[in-house]
Design a protein around this nucleic acid. Structure first.
Lengths: 146, 146
DNA sequence: CAAATAGCTTGCATATTGCAAGTTATTGTG
DNA sequence: CACAATAACTTGCAATATGCAAGCTATTTG
């Protein structure tokens, strides 16, 4: 245990290059992570599906965030071959690497929300073996390589 | 692996009770997580120390976020017994449970920031054994029980 | 080619943030 | 015990971001 450097400050050199700040600059707002949750965990991939989420994102913000996430290479946008009116937003590999963050958000929220509806058994499984859950999401999107 | 429910949606019942959304409501803004990073990883615990961070939070926002985090029971505020002019902001147990989230933000940021200064060896150690790193932070704040 | 649908864009009111300056509380000094 | 210094805010205001409603554009379907 002593071998690990226990201060992330030492990892960054300076705060300006802090990897935590870098991440927050890209998706550290309320809506970006909710869109990514919808894609990765709720299996949504269309504009109208994101709009339909309970939290009620507005059209201009959704449009803006989808553009930003696409620009950052976190999602990709393609026309649906079966319904050419629609676009399909898919996670990239960079996006799949966000799964651990979203899992930890869920674990913390389920622990501290007094009104949580997250089933305790399921949460216990995920807490005990995060890797399996992460793998299952990777399997779900296994066709993705970019 | 098949035993795990692979859709967090099923965990929530409805999105309104989603543990991810709950977490984001509390600290899902750019500044809250940076303050918590300062406390947990950069060993800062005073108003002026937070103000001094490279990212440049302004006084009113810092004041507002410290109040919110205290109200949520994530940090506690006490006068410094050695310098009674100052207050000391300390992490609660609820705060220590945020370490995994911040670690994952750091891991993702270090992987994708082309200009990261995070030393690859240190990041590799943390990626390989998150638990040790989490334990080391718990040890650092081992006096905390609330 | 007209209606329907999906995916935006625009305008405007409201809310949040950033910056500079001022205020309060406590401490150390004469 | 006045008085300057320090730490921790608070306030006012301009700039930015968000929320909401309405309108616009591209594609498909009849």
């Amino acid at each position: 245990m002593q071998a690990i450097c226990y201060n992330l400050f030492a990892m960054c050199g300076e705060e300006k290059n802090c990897p935590i700040f870098y991440s927050l600059e890209i998706f550290g707002d309320r809506w970006s992570l909710l869109i990514l949750r919808d894609i990765l965990h709720f299996d949504k991939n269309r504009y109208t599906e994101f709009l339909g989420s309970d939290e009620g994102i507005s059209t201009n913000i959704l449009s803006d965030r989808l553009k930003k996430l696409e620009k950052e290479g976190i999602i990709s946008k393609h026309r649906d071959p079966d319904n050419k009116k629609q676009f399909i937003y898919s996670p990239t590999k960079k996006c799949l690497d966000l799964v651990p963050i979203i899992i930890e958000l869920a674990v913390w929220g389920a622990k501290y929300d007094p009104d949580t509806k997250a089933p305790p058994e399921e949460m216990a499984k995920i807490r005990k073996n995060r890797k399996d859950y992460i793998d299952s999401i990777r399997t779900k999107f296994k066709s993705i390589d970019d």
